[in-house]
Amino acid sequence: MNNHPVSEAAARLGIEHPIVQGPFGGGLSTVELAAAVSRLGGLGSYGAHGLAPERIGEVTAAIRHRTDAPFAMNLWISDHDPGGLALSPEAFDRVYALFEPWFRELGVDKPEMPERYHAEYAAQIDALLEARPPVFSFVFGIPDRRVLEECRRLGIVTVGAATSIAEAEALDAARVDLIVATGAEAGGHRPSFLQRAEDSLIGTFVLVQLVADRVSVPVIAAGGIADARGLRAARALGAGAAQIGTAFLACEESGTHEAHRQRLFGPDARQTTLTRSFTGRLARGLRNRWTEQMGQQPETLPPFPVQGWFVSKLRAAAIAAGRDDLVSLWSGQIAPNLRHRRAADLMQALITD
């Protein structure tokens, strides 16, 4: 049973306030946002799973140049789903046929078949250990014993994500330093690793209580929290801190595009959906034409990361054309309550309200 005082999460992370900025992949994390949150007493985070290994050290150094406070670098432990590591030329052409109408609509040429569809996790983790960030947070699994022992030797705090009791217990057994209990309300990817994400949709405030009663380390609540009220509620239920994603994603310091921000602050924020149509893994975002049409037959979609690779080849053209109906618009269910457009204003409200 978790008998830790709620302040222990912040103490273990070395931060002043029990606030963690959720890490964003797909170019949505920025050095500016992570450093700003850390300078203001929270834990800034950078989603590094899409970075080539050599970029991980560069980004870590860039954040360190902007702040002396702790921050987290985040990786996906699993870099492919079954069938997603490689495709034959014939299979590549079959998958392209699913996307061809979209490529034509946006005027994008057929891409060349790559050697890999995602950066290799093994190389990424070696680069991360060499960069030695203050905190290593991770999703979609648990690093092997060698990695966790090396983190302890280097003084890197480890933070793993759970979407169920079983995942939290597995993280605890592996001696991870803190556990994020991430509920189904959260925006972005559902980082389940012991069951299908569709079978691990426990709400945040239920999950926090279930996990806090069963693990020996501090718990961080994630999902459905965007203000001080949510932070207080999470702490009252046993979390030592809150991880906040959508509210920070909506800030001007993030790497998202302006049309996405406008949608987060508009009436469309009332309708989110869980979809595999962008990356091949289940994630929550705003509904649009892509989720409605490409997501109608999820069984026809290629696995992660193949799906995400093809979608990424369309993203720049879609954004340039103002086609936010064809790009991912990650969002949690709490988005209609968003109020702040700058990280400093959001942090101030979280701390003082």
Rank of each mutant, 00 (worst) to 15 (best):
L148M: 11
R175E: 15
E150F: 06
R132N: 13
L171Y: 12
A162H: 02
S192L: 12
E130S: 14
V135C: 12
V176M: 00
H189W: 12
E149R: 13
L178K: 07
D177I: 09
P143L: 05
V139G: 09
G141Q: 07
L154Q: 13
L128M: 09
T182P: 01
G141E: 08
D126A: 15
A174M: 08
H189E: 15
A166Q: 14
G187S: 14
R153N: 03
F140A: 00
E150P: 00
A168L: 09
L194Q: 15
E169A: 12
S137T: 11
H189V: 14
T182W: 02
I142Y: 01
T182R: 13
V139S: 12
R153H: 11
V176T: 07
I142F: 04
I179P: 00
R132H: 11
S164F: 07
P143I: 06
E149A: 14
D144A: 02
L129F: 05
A127I: 04
P134R: 08
A174H: 07
V180R: 05
A162M: 03
S164C: 10
A170D: 13
A186H: 01
G155C: 03
G187M: 06
R146M: 11
I156D: 00
C151Q: 03
A181M: 11
T182C: 04
D126P: 05
A174K: 01
E149N: 05
L129E: 03
I156W: 07
V139P: 00
R153G: 01
E150A: 10
E167Q: 05
R132Q: 15
L129W: 10
T158V: 10
L194I: 11
A127T: 08
V139H: 07
S192W: 13
G160F: 00
E150H: 04
R146W: 13
P134E: 10
A166E: 15
P134Q: 10
L194M: 15
A186Y: 08
A181R: 02
H189C: 11
L171W: 06
V159P: 01
E167R: 05
R175S: 14
E169N: 08
R145W: 08
D177E: 10
G141W: 04
L148Q: 13
L194C: 13
E185R: 06
L128T: 03
V157I: 15
G188D: 13
V176C: 03
E167H: 08
T182Q: 15
E150Y: 00
G183I: 01
